[in-house]
Design a binder for these strands. Structure first.
Length: 352
RNA sequence: UCCGCAGUAGCUCAAUCGGCAGAGCAAUCGGCUGUUAACCGAUGGGUUCUAGGUUCGAGUCCUAGCUGCGGAGCCA
């Protein structure tokens, strides 16, 4: 050091080297962000986001922005934030997927990357009401090809963080060897098989509470305890393929010869971090699409343009959405997703 | 919405069976000091989340509510 100049005499700093409670730290998020842990997490987040764009930009996808103010929901209307839009009702977007399905017919491979909003009253370590999602969508891509893209994409993101942010990850106490494992291929198990595995685990456990939590029948969607139990069997993310049509969104292609199952795949992160990707091959038949929209009790008018996509020249296509905060939370080995967002929005948290 | 836990000084917490509400850190003042979460002494600091109730007496027990935390459901 050769020179010292006082820029400002700071007031008493609220955050001391002592332990603090969650509520206090969150109230002081604007200052908490300066501390080493938070600094490290944001650096990893930034690198992860860069790596996501990097991989897609060099693998046939271009970034296209999709709207945040939208007239209708993609997946039901219960979890949307309504906003006044002059004389109309609008909603904050919870996905850009439907718009990306329009984009691929102009650009072949696209992705959107931005905040999404879900008014779910979830109070868990895996949920935010505002989170960032990257959603690639590819023409001439079936489910098998989609899974290959996903495993390469996720591996690239993890390996880039490991290479460029080793100092930060070490500071966070992350076990780097667990991240080094994250390379393709990822195991693929069918939904039917996953149910069998969970039932097996349920019969093996002596813990009565756990036994109760693992209760499941074919046709049920997985809860968090199921995902955690299932992923503990693997050292890398695992694909669960072919969910029941009834528990998934309306736009997924039926499984050939098995209409009760759809060509969907979720990617579950290891170590209990849960679902980081939801993806599927999209439905191609316009008549079946109309039928599904009606079955889901959705109004027809807002989806007219979406049905049009199948009428005026369509090809097999697939896409997925990856939750940035969940992924970074897993990479950093954090206990709670709220530290991944610089200014997290939670069910009871809108400040600062 | 449901289940569980918690709410005491600016922060983190203690208070035995229901019996005078305390400590550390921070602050203020003084001292000491090549420190790096410094040290020594002194001082100030409280609607014990709110509203009721039980009791001679409630931080402590009961009822309702509020807020937060953890989890479930829902989802990325």
């Amino acid at each position: 050091m050769s020179d010292l100049q006082v820029v400002q005499i700071a007031a008493e700093y609220p955050i001391t080297p002592k332990e603090h409670g969650v509520e206090f730290l969150m109230d002081n998020r604007h200052l908490w962000l300066r501390s080493s842990r938070q600094w490290a997490v944001q650096r990893v987040r930034s690198t992860a986001m860069r790596a996501m764009r990097e991989w897609l930009d060099t693998h046939g996808c271009m970034e296209v922005s999709t709207p945040i103010l939208t007239p209708a929901a993609a997946e039901g209307t219960t979890t949307l934030f309504p906003v006044e839009y002059f004389e109309q009702q609008a909603y904050l977007a919870q996905t850009g997927q439907l718009y990306n399905e329009a984009n691929i017919f102009a650009f072949k491979g696209v992705y959107c990357f931005g905040p999404t909003f879900r008014a779910e009253k979830s109070k868990t370590r895996r949920h935010l009401t505002e989170f960032w999602m990257i959603e690639p969508e590819m023409a001439y891509c079936d489910l098998d090809q989609l899974l290959e893209i996903e495993e390469q994409f996720v591996s690239h993101v993890v390996q880039t963080c490991l290479k460029d942010r080793a100092v930060e990850l070490k500071y966070l106490g992350r076990e780097l060897n667990k991240l080094a494992n994250i390379m393709p291929p990822f195991p693929r198990i069918r939904y039917d098989e996953a149910i069998e595995r969970i039932k097996q685990l349920q019969s093996e456990t002596a813990d009565l509470e756990q036994k109760e939590l693992l209760n499941i029948e074919w046709g049920d969607d997985f809860g968090s305890p199921h995902e955690t139990a299932l992923t503990q069997q693997f050292d890398r993310p695992v694909f669960v393929v072919g969910y029941p049509t009834a528990v998934k969104a309306f736009y997924m292609e039926p499984w050939p010869g098995r209409p009760e199952v759809c060509k969907s795949a979720d990617l579950l992160a290891p170590e209990g971090y849960g679902e980081i990707i939801g993806g599927s091959e999209r439905m191609s038949d316009p008549n079946l699409l109309i039928q599904r929209i009606q079955e889901h009790g959705l109004p027809m008018e807002p989806y007219q343009w979406y049905v049009d996509l199948r009428k005026y020249g369509s090809v097999p296509h697939s896409g997925f959405g990856l939750g940035v905060e969940r992924t970074v939370s897993w990479i950093c080995g954090l206990e709670h997703i709220r530290e991944v967002s610089p200014f997290p929005r939670l069910i009871n948290r809108l400040y600062p």
